[in-house]
Design a protein around this nucleic acid. Structure first.
Lengths: 152, 152
DNA sequence: CATCATTGTGGGTAAAAGTGGGGAATTTTG
DNA sequence: CAAAATTCCCCACTTTTACCCACAATGATG
């Protein structure tokens, strides 16, 4: 099980390649086979799953019935953005143009560790997001309601 | 087990041939023997099953009762339009005119990975479908039902 | 502090992928 | 049985991708 953490500023080169930070590489399971699945995330960022973690997402999609119209919509919505990408010899992945455009990414990215997944943001978009969130409600007060005692 | 994903824009040539995206080819089981079964899908698209996955569809059809009129109707509809097609040397399949007409496909197609099957759409039909569906349920609310905390 | 390994970044090139079309082989049709 | 049409199997061209190599900057080591 992965446990990505931290934030890193990295560059995107002209071929759409992004380096995976060395500290995150050390968190990769051998089961991932250096294969990532990149997809659209929440807000305006990209989710990056190592293959072994993506399989869990896929498992919940496989529970859906192909005969149910709403289930078909869910599967299509989720899978249409998903792309596989293999680490190259320099531990970089290629992110397709469409996904870069969606996340408004140009030359610089912010890479965030989020336990089972990695998030990739346009740094400006991320700081705007953080500013907006903290103006609604302080980090402390959100945390107070999020971390509730378990119900058992 | 296949796990097709992603969406790809490809062209249909004058002979009705469509290329199978390289990333999807890599997901093909050797058991498929480069043989596909194409049939009518739901929502005006075509379903494309590699042979090994089609066998599972057939298996579930065999579970249906020949004595039930509604079962017979479903089985006939699915099988009536099913066609086999072998990959050519350039990894393309030929789609019969009748199926292209059914899906309103002309020069361009959208190819969607849907885990065990591949869907082929007229791009316009797909974007209309997505627009209509997303009025009811946005990407984020769909994604929220799939990206759930792990059950431990 | 000098040396060496690792990391992040850039770019060139051979291979693969996507697309189009010719012509032989096969089937269909009058 | 010959003509027409269709299918299949190649070949060819352009674009994209994968796989190298290179190098400066950083960090680790004795």
């Amino acid at each position: 099980m992965s446990s990505f953490k931290g934030s890193y500023s990295y560059s995107v080169d002209s071929k759409g390649r992004i380096n995976i930070p060395a500290k995150m590489r050390k968190n990769l399971s051998p089961d991932a086979n250096d294969l990532f699945i990149i997809t659209r995330g929440f807000e305006t960022c990209l989710f990056l799953y190592p293959n072994d973690e993506w399989i869990k997402v896929e498992h919940s999609l496989r529970q859906l019935s192909p005969a149910d119209p709403r289930h078909r919509y869910v599967t299509r919505t989720l899978l249409q953005y998903a792309t596989e990408s293999q680490l190259d010899g320099q531990f970089r992945i290629i992110i397709p143009k469409e996904l870069l455009q969606f996340a408004k990414i140009e030359n610089e990215v912010l890479i965030l560790g989020m336990l089972e997944r990695i998030e990739v943001w346009n740094p400006k978009v991320y700081s705007d997001y953080m500013t907006a969130q903290s103006q609604n409600e302080s980090y402390e007060s959100v945390a107070a309601t999020v971390f509730k005692p378990s119900q058992e």
